[in-house]
């Protein structure tokens, strides 16, 4: 290997290496967060059926989205209100009834989670800012099992600080650190 062009090779190697790292960083930002690990729910609850066909409101199940910081998950008694009588033959409903029989409660996998130094209040966003659920959680009514997806305009760094800050900028919401940091 002629020593003549040794520095040249070195320089090229350096640039290539840095380039790879940058590309990897950007890509990983996109892929990983966009879809995230697909949660395996114990019961395949289909939002499309309940929301689109039956026309249920989000707040019917996630009742305290307008009353507290958490938009809670309904308890099994709400499911049993209908499913004790209606279409008991669907395999998923059978599976659900079996789980309720055995454990009394369905242990859903958590899909959306905020870091523990973040204070996010659902009721402020739904009642005061009047933001549609789809704005952050994506078109849930077309999903069977809710997956991590963003309907928001910019998808970069979904559910990350930048994503929230851009939305706050756009809507003129307060950008004080203390609004979201505990």
């Amino acid at each position: 290997m002629k020593t003549k062009n040794l520095p040249l090779i070195l320089a090229v190697a350096m640039i290539m290496w840095v380039g790879i790292v940058i590309i990897l960083a950007i890509v990983s930002q996109k892929i990983i967060h966009r879809f995230g690990p697909l949660p395996e729910q114990p019961v395949e609850f289909s939002h499309t059926v309940h929301v689109n066909q039956l026309g249920l409101e989000c707040l019917y199940c996630h009742s305290s989205a307008e009353k507290s910081i958490h938009a809670t998950i309904p308890s099994s008694s709400l499911c049993l209100d209908c499913h004790e009588g209606v279409d008991m033959d669907i395999p998923e409903v059978k599976k659900m009834l079996a789980i309720i029989e055995e454990k009394g409660e369905i242990d859903w996998e958590r899909v959306y989670e905020v870091k523990d130094h973040v204070y996010f209040s659902h009721r402020v966003h739904t009642v005061i800012a009047k933001i549609e659920c789809q704005e952050c959680h994506g078109p849930v009514e077309h999903m069977t099992v809710a997956i991590r997806a963003s309907g928001g305009s910019s998808d970069r760094g979904f559910m990350e600080m930048g994503w929230c800050v851009t939305c706050h900028e756009r809507r003129g919401a307060p950008r004080e650190c203390i609004t979201c940091h505990k």
């Binding site: 809670t72 008694s77 859903w108």
Partner: peptide, 21 residues
């Protein structure tokens, strides 16, 4: 030196709704 962010799996935690709401 890698600037690749920590892409370890996001920990999934179980959610137990209130027994009797």
């Amino acid at each position: 030196l890698a600037m690749v962010p920590d892409i370890s799996r996001r920990p999934i935690r179980k959610l137990f709704p209130l027994l009797i709401p």
